[in-house]
C-alpha cells in the first residue's frame, strides 16, 4: 500500500481506480472496453502526477522530503556501498543510532560513510530516534572522520534529519559543543568530504556533518536553518504556521542552488524518490563518485583550502 500525502489525494483516487480496473481486466479478458478505459485513466493519472510534481510548493516539498517511504540512509548503503562495516560508539558515553557510520566501498573506492537514519517502520523510527541525534552521534561522527583522515579515506555524508534532538540529556552532555566541534572537524579535515541531503537537512544537526567540499541535494529535499515548525515557533511563537515559514525561508534544493549554498541537484522521478528508489540511489552514487574523483591527487592542504574558501565565499555575492 502506497502512502499518499494530503495534496496527492486526486492522484491517489486515480491510481486506485487504475488498480481496480486492472484487476478487473485481468479477471475478464473479453472486456475490451475496459482496456480502453484503463488506458485513458492511466494516462489521466500519469498527467495528474506530472502536473502536481511540476509545481510543488516549498511546504509540499517538505512533505515529500519527509515521506515515510522515501529511501533513507540504510537504503543508500544497501544500494551503493559494498562491504559496509558499521562502526559504533563515540568512546565517551554511548552509541547513537540516529547517526550511522562505517567503512565500505563505493564504486571500488574505500570510503567512510556517515549519515542520519530516520528508520522506516515504527520500531526502526524509535530505535533511530527519528534521525535526531544526541551529542554521542556527533562525537561518533568526529571520531570516524578523524579515523578516515588518518587512513586517507574520503568521507561521504548523507543528511536526513529534522535537527539535533532537543532533550535534557542531550543538553546535559553538551549538544551545542558536540555540533560545534563536529563542524570544526569537518572544516579542518585533510580528506575530501562530499555531502548529499537525501531528505531533510535540519539546522545545526545537519551542518555538523554537511560542512563539506561539495554539497548536493535531491530534487525534493529541503535544507533549512530550522525546521519550518521550529522557525514558526521562533518567529511567531506558533508552530502551526510552519507552512508560512516554509514558504518564506527559501528551503528547497532549487532555492539553495540559486543562493550558491549547494553545488548541484539530483533529479527525482516524477512523484518523488520513493516511486523509483533504485534509480535515485544509483544517480546519487554516480554524482558522489564523480565529486570524490575531483579531489584525487589533491594534497590535504589543498582540500582544506578548497572547503574553507567555499564557505567564506558563501552569501557574500548575492
Amino acid at each position: 500500500m502506497r502512502t499518499y500525502l494530503d495534496f496527492e489525494k486526486p492522484i491517489a483516487e486515480l491510481e486506485s481506480k487504475v488498480a481496480e480496473l486492472r484487476a478487473l481486466s485481468d479477471q475478464d479478458d473479453s472486456a475490451v472496453s475496459i482496456a480502453d478505459e484503463l488506458a485513458t485513466l492511466e494516462e489521466k493519472s500519469r498527467t495528474a502526477l506530472i502536473e502536481t510534481y511540476a509545481k510543488l510548493t516549498p511546504w509540499q516539498k517538505t512533505q515529500v522530503a519527509r515521506h515515510p517511504e522515501r529511501p533513507h540512509f540504510l537504503d543508500y548503503i544497501h544500494g551503493l556501498v559494498a562491504d559496509f562495516t558499521p562502526l559504533a560508539g563515540d568512546r565517551l558515553f554511548a552509541e547513537d543510532h540516529a547517526i550511522i557510520g562505517g567503512l565500505g566501498r563505493m564504486n571500488g573506492r574505500s570510503v567512510m560513510v556517515i549519515g542520519h537514519e530516520k528508520g522506516s517502520d515504527t520500531e526502526g523510527r524509535i530505535k533511530h530516534n527519528f534521525g535526531m541525534a544526541r551529542p554521542e552521534g556527533y562525537r561518533k561522527a568526529q571520531r570516524l572522520m578523524g579515523l578516515a583522515e588518518r587512513f586517507s579515506v574520503p568521507v561521504v555524508t548523507l543528511v536526513d534529519t529534522a535537527g539535533a534532538y532537543p532533550g535534557i540529556g542531550a543538553e546535559e552532555r553538551g549538544q551545542a559543543e558536540a555540533i560545534a566541534r563536529s563542524t570544526d572537524v569537518c572544516m579542518g579535515l585533510g580528506v575530501p568530504i562530499v555531502s548529499l541531503v537525501i531528505g531533510e537537512g535540519g539546522s545545526g544537526g545537519a551542518v555538523a556533518i554537511a560542512t563539506a567540499n561539495r554539497i548536493y541535494m535531491l530534487e525534493h529535499s529541503i535544507y533549512t536553518v530550522a525546521s519550518p515548525e521550529a522557525a514558526a515557533s521562533i518567529l511567531w511563537r506558533d508552530s502551526a504556521r510552519a507552512v508560512d515559514a516554509a514558504t518564506n525561508m527559501k528551503i528547497t534544493a532549487q532555492d539553495l542552488l540559486g543562493l550558491g549554498v549547494i553545488d548541484g541537484i539530483i533529479s527525482e522521478p516524477t512523484g518523488g524518490a520513493h516511486r523509483e528508489r533504485d534509480n535515485v540511489i544509483a544517480a546519487a552514487g554516480a554524482v558522489l563518485d564523480e565529486a570524490l574523483s575531483e579531489f584525487s591527487g589533491m594534497s590535504a592542504d589543498e582540500i582544506r583550502k578548497d572547503r574553507r574558501e567555499k564557505f567564506l565565499a558563501m552569501g557574500r555575492v548575492s
Binding site: A180, T183, Y223, T224, L256, M314
Partner: peptide, 9 residues
C-alpha cells in the same frame, strides 16, 4: 534562512 545557518561553518 540558510545563509544564516552557513555562518556556523
Amino acid at each position: 534562512g540558510i545563509l544564516s545557518l552557513m555562518q556556523m561553518p
